[in-house]
Design a protein around this nucleic acid. Structure first.
Lengths: 209, 209
DNA sequence: ATGCAAGCGGACGGGGTTCGTCCGCATGGT
DNA sequence: ACCATGCGGACGAACCCCGTCCGCTTGCAT
């Protein structure tokens, strides 16, 4: 929950509205994804759309503010997992939390999957930092012999999306925590020693050229 | 590829247009999901929208025809996998093919995930048949001691969606066959003996009351 | 208490998309 | 050669969304 800005050159109600808009936008992005309408956000915040544009200039500017906050939370989580003693425990915890973040906010799932759109510098920087963290978590697990040698850090990254669209299938209901079962099984599959040789190229950094 | 209907009481061009519409709808549904516009389908089929409505009465009627065909293909695949000698091989093959069907057609992914909308009788019937097949595949694998005892047939069903939204994550590109790595790792996690006790309730049949 | 700058709501114009119909024209088949 | 059947696509109606603008309100300093 960032944005404790103590900007004092605006009226108190303006500052309050700004905060309410961020909160509302966060929730709206979580449940409906990044293409929420400005009206939806404003209404949820209890203000008019005019106020949204007055406070943030542009709808995207508001969305960006929210998304950067969400990235910072993922980064915090990664740093914390790097401090966990047991490398395997640290890795599984982070994968689970990253998967949870993706599920908690449809917007997060949409942004982390974006590859055609050019990210803002803030997001690009945090993306790299998250990659670094996953690389470190993976290296630790490899070094400890806990993670299959043929599983790369990119596999780990990709795997944290595996629980995204797994709520229902052909009449079966996974329940509210169903994604945890999926992630658990996936992590078990990643745990050394592995059974099935992985075929195909490993996931690689996205080349946007 | 069903619909070899030899209806002869319509003009030849009408019959041809009908077939082209089904083909175009199939492709459109695959790439854009179930809410393709009628205009998109008609254009891809090389006809006017009027022809679509004349041939199928309603857009949904056309979509239903396509979706039922897709379900039949999944059922064929299931029957084939049940004929595979090795139970584990049969199970993994079906999970992989079901996952592939979900990825090949965004529409399939949308329909199999639907739980609020009441399915047509044709779909309901085929859904039950698919459940039966998965139950049999799972039972065989359990009996052979190849599948973790705590993995249910519902887990198997849900797991076949795990590769759905796993193409990109935080700058990482899984590549065109990345989903196969995810599914492979997941299946390895399902393979006996398991490591991590599964927590939470197992997925259950969806109760639409 | 009062005055005014700052802020507010929400109606509005403009632009976009989709559905399903309808009618003047074309064409398959006898 | 004729006409019933079929065709294309323009069209009206119903949505939804963005960002602006203006008349009204309110915080706050005096």
């Amino acid at each position: 929950m960032p944005d404790l800005d103590v900007t004092t050159d605006v009226r108190a109600d303006a500052r309050r509205n700004r905060r309410q808009l961020i909160v509302a936008a966060r929730e709206a992005i979580a449940s409906r994804g990044l293409d929420v309408s400005a009206l939806d956000i404003a209404t949820a915040a209890g203000v008019g759309v005019g106020t949204l544009y007055r406070r943030f200039g542009t709808k995207d500017s508001l969305l960006d503010a929210v998304v950067v906050g969400l990235y910072d939370e993922m980064l915090d989580s990664a740093q914390e997992c790097l401090r966990v003693e047991d490398p395997w425990e640290g890795l599984t915890r982070f994968v689970t939390e990253l998967a949870g973040a993706h599920r908690d906010s449809r917007g997060v799932a949409e942004v982390t999957a974006a590859c055609d759109t050019v990210p803002t510098p803030e997001i690009a920087e945090r993306t790299t930092a998250l990659q670094d963290a996953v690389i470190r978590l993976t290296d630790r697990a490899h070094a400890a012999g806990a993670l299959r040698a043929d599983v790369t850090w990119q596999d780990v990254m990709i795997g944290s999306r595996a629980g995204l669209d797994t709520d229902h299938c052909l009449g079966v209901d996974a329940g509210p925590d169903g994604w945890r079962r999926v992630i658990t099984l996936l992590l078990d599959g990643m745990r050394a020693p592995g059974y099935t040789p992985l075929s195909g190229a490993a996931p690689h950094l996205h080349d946007n050229s």
